[in-house]
C-alpha cells in the first residue's frame, strides 16, 4: 500500500478562486524519497501545507490518502499524531515556550495518541541530547524559546531535530536546505538520511540539486504552475540544474 497517495489535487487559497494546485498526482511508497523542484511560486509550499492541514487553503478537487486514511478529513494535529511531519520553509517563533519543553509536549502528544505512556524525563533528556549532538544543535538553544532569535540555519536544524525526535512516517521537508551553510547542509542531510528506513517516506522540496547529492531521491518531480510537469529519476535534477526550468514550463504554459 502506498504511504501517501495524492490524486488529481486541486486547491485554492481561501477567499480566492485563483487555483494554485491544478491537478497534482503523486504516490510515495514506504521507503521512498521523492524530491520536488520548481520555480518560485509554483505551489510547492502550498502542496506541503495542504498535506499538513494548514488552514487557509481550500481543496477544490482530488484526494490525499495517507496510510489508507483520508488525510483531508483529519485535523492538522491528528495528521501530525498519525505520523505526518512538515519541516517548515519558514519556522514560526514561539516566545515563552522553551524548545525542550515544546519537544517533550509534542512527543507526549504523539505517544498518548498511540496509547503509550509519557516518556520518562531522563529518557527524554538522553534522546534529545543525542539527537541535538548529531545535528549540531547546541544545548543552550534547547533552553531558548522555540525558534526565537535563531538564525536562519539554526531554525532549519531545529526543524530536523524535531523531526528526528518525533520519528514521523511521512517527512515533508520544505526547502530545509535554504539558509544552511555548506557544512550544515551535510550535517542536516546526514540527519535526514539517518531517518531513511523501509517504512518511512519523504517528500523533499528544494531548489538545489546539491541537497540531492546528499539525500539521494528515488523520484524527482518538477512542479510548475500548479502541476507536475515532469517526473523522472535523480538524473532529472541534474538536467534541471543544467537547463533551468524554462524548458519544462514553456512546454506546458497554458
Amino acid at each position: 500500500m502506498a504511504l501517501l497517495d495524492i490524486k488529481d489535487l486541486h486547491a485554492t487559497v481561501e477567499d480566492d478562486t485563483k487555483a494554485i494546485l491544478k491537478g497534482i498526482s503523486l504516490t510515495i511508497k514506504p521507503g521512498e524519497v521523492h524530491a520536488v523542484m520548481g520555480p518560485n511560486g509554483a505551489g510547492k509550499s502550498t502542496l506541503s501545507n495542504v498535506i499538513a492541514g494548514r488552514p487557509g487553503y481550500t481543496v477544490t478537487g482530488g484526494s490525499i490518502t495517507y496510510d489508507g486514511q483520508d488525510l483531508l478529513a483529519m485535523e492538522a494535529d491528528e495528521r501530525a499524531r498519525a505520523g505526518v511531519f512538515l519541516a517548515f520553509q519558514y519556522p514560526v517563533e514561539i516566545p515563552g515556550v522553551a524548545t525542550a519543553t515544546f519537544l517533550k509536549t509534542a512527543l507526549n502528544a504523539r505517544r498518548k495518541a498511540n496509547g503509550e505512556p509519557e516518556i520518562e524525563a531522563l529518557d527524554f533528556m538522553k534522546m534529545m541530547k543525542a539527537n541535538a549532538k548529531r545535528l549540531g544543535v547546541p544545548d543552550d538553544m534547547l533552553k531558548r524559546p522555540v525558534n526565537v532569535g535563531f538564525s536562519g540555519g539554526e531554525k532549519k536544524r531545529a526543524e530536523v531535530l524535531q523531526m528526528a525526535m518525533l520519528e514521523p512516517r511521512l517527512c515533508v521537508l520544505d526547502e530545509t536546505d535554504s539558509g544552511l551553510d555548506i557544512d550544515a547542509l551535510k550535517v542536516v542531510a546526514d540527519g535526514v538520511n539517518a531517518l531513511r528506513t523501509p517504512e518511512r517516506g519523504m517528500l523533499v522540496i528544494t531548489h538545489y540539486q546539491r541537497l540531492l547529492n546528499y539525500i539521494v531521491p528515488d523520484v524527482v518531480h518538477v512542479l510548475a504552475g500548479g502541476r507536475i510537469v515532469k517526473s523522472g529519476d535523480r538524473t532529472l535534477a541534474e538536467e534541471l540544474e543544467a537547463k533551468g526550468y524554462g524548458a519544462f514550463t514553456e512546454a506546458t504554459a497554458a
Binding site: R54, P55, D77, A106
Partner: peptide, 14 residues
C-alpha cells in the same frame, strides 16, 4: 494563527 498551526503541526490538540 501561524503559531497555533505550528504547534498543531507537531501534534498538539488545538
Amino acid at each position: 494563527m501561524d503559531q497555533l498551526f505550528y504547534l498543531m503541526a507537531r501534534g498538539l490538540a488545538e
